[in-house]
C-alpha cells in the first residue's frame, strides 16, 4: 500500500516543529494587558500615553523608515495574530505593509471595519484630497495627504480617535482611557501654545521638501512650500526636474530644503550647495530625529526648522 509510505514520510520531524514546540513552551503566560500593535511610532506613543498600564504596545515601523516603504516582516504578522487592537495612522499612509500584514495575521478582530481596527485619522479633516486620480499624478493617496501627524492640532484629533478605539475594544477601561486622553490633550494644548510662539519665525518662510508631506505642518505654522525634489509623490527626480527646481529656488529665494530623514541626503545636499540653502532634517514619524515620543518629536522638528531659519536669514 502506498498510503502508509506517505505517513512514514510525514513522521520525519522537521527541525522547525521541534523549535516551535520549544518556543511555544517559552512563550509564557499571556499578559492581561490589552495587546496593541501600532503601525507607526506616533500612534504607538499616543496609545501608550492614553492606555497607560492597561496596554502593551508594539510598533511596526522604525522611526527612521519611510512610512510608505516599511518592509513586511512576518514577525509582525504573529504579533497581529494575537493582538486585541491594531492602531493605524490612516488615510492610506501604511498601504505598503498593513494590508499584507493583516492578511498574514489571520485575526478577524483587526480587519478594517472590525472593532479592533483603530484608525487615528477618523477626526482629521484631510487636505489635498485628489478630485481625480490616476498614476500620471504619481503615488497619490486617494483619501488625502496622510502626513497630518506633523501638525500637533491634528495630533489631538488622532488621540481622540485612539482613545475611543481603545474604549471600544476594552470597555472596562473606559475611565482610564478618558483620563489618559485628557492628560495627553492637556499636555498637547500647553505645548501647542508654546510651539506657536517658538514657530513664529517660520511664518512666510519659503521651503522645498523632498516629498509632498508638509501641507499640515505648513498650514499650521505658515511655511510656504514652493516645490518638491520628487517630481510627483513617489517619483524620483530627473536631472531636468532638478534644474527647474534649482531655478525656482533661486527665483523665489528659497533658503530652506527640508529633507525627510528616510530620503536620499545627496540630492538635497547638492541642491543646497548650488543655491546656498540649508538642509533641515525632518522626522515624519516620531523619534526620527532622536527624541522619542510624539510631543518630543514635534518639538525636535520645530527646533530644527527654527534653528535653520535663523541661521539662513530667511525669508
Amino acid at each position: 500500500m502506498a498510503l502508509p509510505s506517505v505517513s512514514r514520510r510525514l513522521r520525519h520531524p522537521f527541525p522547525f516543529a521541534i523549535l516551535a514546540i520549544a518556543l511555544s513552551l517559552s512563550t509564557g503566560v499571556a499578559s492581561a494587558k490589552l495587546r496593541v500593535v501600532a503601525s507607526t511610532p506616533d500612534v504607538a506613543d499616543m496609545a501608550r500615553q492614553i492606555g497607560g498600564d492597561r496596554v502593551s504596545v508594539v510598533t511596526i515601523a522604525n522611526p527612521r523608515q519611510d512610512p510608505h516603504k516599511v518592509p513586511v516582516r512576518p514577525s509582525f504578522a504573529t504579533r497581529l495574530h494575537r493582538a486585541d487592537a491594531l492602531v493605524v495612522q490612516g488615510l492610506g499612509l501604511e498601504h505598503a505593509f498593513i494590508p499584507a500584514l493583516i492578511e498574514g495575521a489571520r485575526n478577524g478582530n483587526i480587519l478594517p471595519g472590525a472593532p479592533g481596527y483603530i484608525d487615528a485619522s477618523l477626526y482629521v479633516k484631510p487636505l489635498q484630497v485628489p478630485s481625480s486620480q490616476n498614476r500620471s499624478q504619481g503615488e497619490l493617496h486617494p483619501l488625502g495627504n496622510p502626513h497630518f501627524n506633523l501638525d500637533p492640532v491634528q495630533g489631538k484629533r488622532m488621540a481622540r480617535a485612539i482613545a475611543e478605539g481603545l474604549e471600544r475594544v476594552d470597555p472596562s477601561g473606559a475611565d482610564d482611557y478618558r483620563e489618559g486622553l485628557e492628560r495627553f490633550t492637556t499636555l498637547l494644548d500647553e505645548k501647542i501654545e508654546e510651539w506657536a510662539r517658538l514657530a513664529e519665525p517660520l511664518r512666510g518662510v519659503k521651503v522645498v521638501s523632498y516629498h509632498n508631506d508638509l501641507i499640515y505642518l505648513a498650514n499650521r505654522y505658515g511655511l510656504l512650500q514652493v516645490g518638491t525634489i520628487e517630481i510627483k509623490p513617489g517619483i524620483q527626480p530627473t536631472p531636468g526636474h532638478l534644474e527647474n527646481l534649482l531655478r525656482l529656488m533661486k527665483r523665489e529665494n528659497v533658503k530652506i530644503i527640508i529633507r525627510e530623514i528616510s530620503y536620499d541626503p545627496g540630492v538635497a545636499r547638492s541642491l543646497a550647495e548650488r543655491t546656498g540653502a540649508r538642509v533641515v532634517p525632518l522626522a515624519v514619524m516620531a523619534g526620527g530625529l532622536g527624541p522619542e515620543g510624539y510631543v518630543d518629536s514635534i518639538q525636535a522638528n520645530l527646533e530644527a526648522l527654527v534653528g535653520a531659519v535663523a541661521e539662513s536669514g530667511s525669508p
Binding site: A20, S24, A77, T78
Partner: peptide
C-alpha cells in the same frame, strides 16, 4: 496554520 507563538511558523 499559523502557530500562536511569537516566532512566525
Amino acid at each position: 496554520w499559523l502557530m500562536p507563538i511569537d516566532l512566525f511558523i
